[in-house]
Design a binder for these strands. Structure first.
Length: 198
DNA sequence: TAGGTGATCTTG
DNA sequence: AAGATCACCTAT
């Protein structure tokens, strides 16, 4: 299979990409363990006009810098002192936009994911919820900024979802963003149980 | 439903 | 240099 190209990630439409990523497959090959799963839940963030985005108003800090480095790379940061959240940076260099990947439905490497999470059975909470998913896949801060053309984290085509299968709604955990918390920039697969609950 | 946990950013 | 804040998860 082929990796999804940098040109795809650099499209000037983070909302389209967030919606379109549903159904594609996320792979990690970390510490010799290969895992993969179908993306079931995403959220879009955009510096230009979205207060929930770390780089809102084009704020450049050490943390947000990678958001400006051009589409097709990973943005990984620590949240609540515990969780590494994995985002895909989109649009071209200088325009800070990205998609938070919130959940996957596992396809391969379940054994490794269970091991990382100290679980014995595959259940939605193994890989639904952004912190949970990253932990299952082995994604951590050392992956911040790496290319999605690498052999460490990448995406491949699989299938796409029809509109009837997609729910579009508000994002989770962004109340601090005021009115922007109401933007319907979260997308998930209605028919998957591997989706985080509100 | 609360607490754990620590990097990040802002303020002074 | 300190303190508030935070794109969450888990177990009671």
């Amino acid at each position: 299979m082929n990796k999804i190209s940098t040109a795809y990630y650099q499209q000037d439409n983070v909302l389209f990409i967030a919606r379109d990523l549903l159904g594609k497959v996320l792979f990690t090959n970390i510490n010799g363990k290969t895992c993969s799963g179908i993306i079931t839940e995403t959220e879009a963030y955009r510096a230009k006009d979205d207060k929930a985005c770390h780089a809102f108003g084009n704020r450049r800090t050490n943390r947000t810098e990678v958001m400006f480095n051009g589409g097709g790379i990973a943005y990984v940061y620590l949240c609540y002192g515990i969780h590494n959240l994995f985002n895909i940076i989109t649009n071209v260099e200088g325009v800070a936009e990205g998609v938070l990947i919130r959940a996957i439905e596992p396809i391969s490497g379940q054994k490794f994911m269970l091991e990382r999470k100290n679980m014995t059975d595959v259940r939605p909470r193994m890989s639904a919820g952004p912190g949970s998913m990253s932990k299952a896949l082995g994604i951590g801060k050392k992956h911040n900024g790496i290319s999605l053309q690498s052999d460490i984290i990448w995406l491949e085509e699989h299938g796409s979802l029809g509109d009837a299968e997609v729910v579009q709604t508000t994002r989770i955990g962004v109340d601090y963003a005021g009115e922007d918390a109401l933007l319907p920039w979260r997308f998930y697969n209605k028919n998957s149980s591997f989706v985080s609950k509100r």
